[in-house]
């Protein structure tokens, strides 16, 4: 069952065309990695998939009852300012807001969900701390917890492990894998090809157009895949 269908999508960034003729589908249950070098249009594509950006032409369609309030999103750089006063629990529970319905306050369920995610990510002990005073790794966990609260069906991650150390990175992917096992569709933008091959089941290689779209196994055996993986290993 496909949740998002892209047909002949063309994208530009600052007036420059960055991606052309993108046609692909994201299916329910996918663990979909979008990879490519810097400037290959992968982050722009993610923004378009999230409807934060209009494609120049082509069509991005949400199908089968999938809608924006089913989405969780962990951005590459959050636009949160340095001096914003907000506690960890306030940030996490803001992921529970749904656009539909006139519901001014959080329900018991929302609060339970937020608690649950904070415990899962090991940030329940700092939930009254101020967000701006946390370390980069802790902030990333808080924002992931918020994204998890929002993700009913699909979680989008934009370069989520940039700047995290290897131990934390492994932990991070374990949590994402767990979510995928629980039935959440994962879409991850990354230039870390090894993690992509290791964890995801489908890979979209962007090079201003689709250079490859298929399973991770097929990718490793493809020419594009071999070149990109080889180039990254420096061996």
């Amino acid at each position: 069952m496909s949740l998002i269908k892209c047909t002949d999508v063309n994208l530009s960034y600052d007036g420059l065309r960055v991606a052309e003729n993108l046609t692909f589908e994201i299916n329910s249950g996918d663990y979909y990695s979008i990879i490519g070098r810097n400037g290959s249009g992968k982050s722009t594509l993610l923004k378009a998939l999230l409807k934060l950006k209009q494609p120049d032409s082509g069509n991005i369609e949400y199908c089968d009852g999938f809608c924006q309030s089913d989405i969780g999103y962990l951005a590459q750089q959050t636009s949160v300012q340095k001096d914003f006063p907000a506690s960890v629990s306030e940030v996490v529970i803001s992921g529970c807001l749904k656009s539909n319905g006139f519901k001014p306050f959080f329900s018991k369920n929302d609060k339970r969900l937020a608690e649950e995610k904070m415990t899962l990510l090991g940030i329940d002990n700092i939930k009254d701390k101020c967000f701006r005073e946390l370390s980069g790794g802790q902030q990333q966990r808080v924002l992931l917890a918020r994204a998890m609260c929002a993700a009913k069906k699909m979680l989008f991650l934009d370069e989520p492990v940039t700047g995290l150390d290897p131990v934390v990175t492994t932990e991070f992917f374990n949590i994402i894998n767990k979510m995928h096992d629980d039935g959440i569709t994962i879409v991850i933008v990354s230039h870390d090809i090894h993690c992509a091959v290791k964890y995801s089941n489908r890979i979209l290689h962007m090079d201003n157009e689709i250079a490859f779209d298929g399973t991770a196994r097929e990718y490793v055996n493809s020419k594009v895949g071999r070149d990109f993986i080889g180039g990254h290993r420096h061996d």
């Binding site: 969780g72 951005a75 959050t78 636009s79 803001s94 929002a150």
Partner: peptide
């Protein structure tokens, strides 16, 4: 303000996230 407090927080804290997750 009271009725929309939580949504005002969300768009103040992180507008991109709010937009991406379907908050107008």
């Amino acid at each position: 303000f009271i009725l929309f407090y939580n949504k005002i927080f969300a768009v103040t804290f992180d507008e991109t996230f709010a937009k991406a997750t379907g908050i107008m």
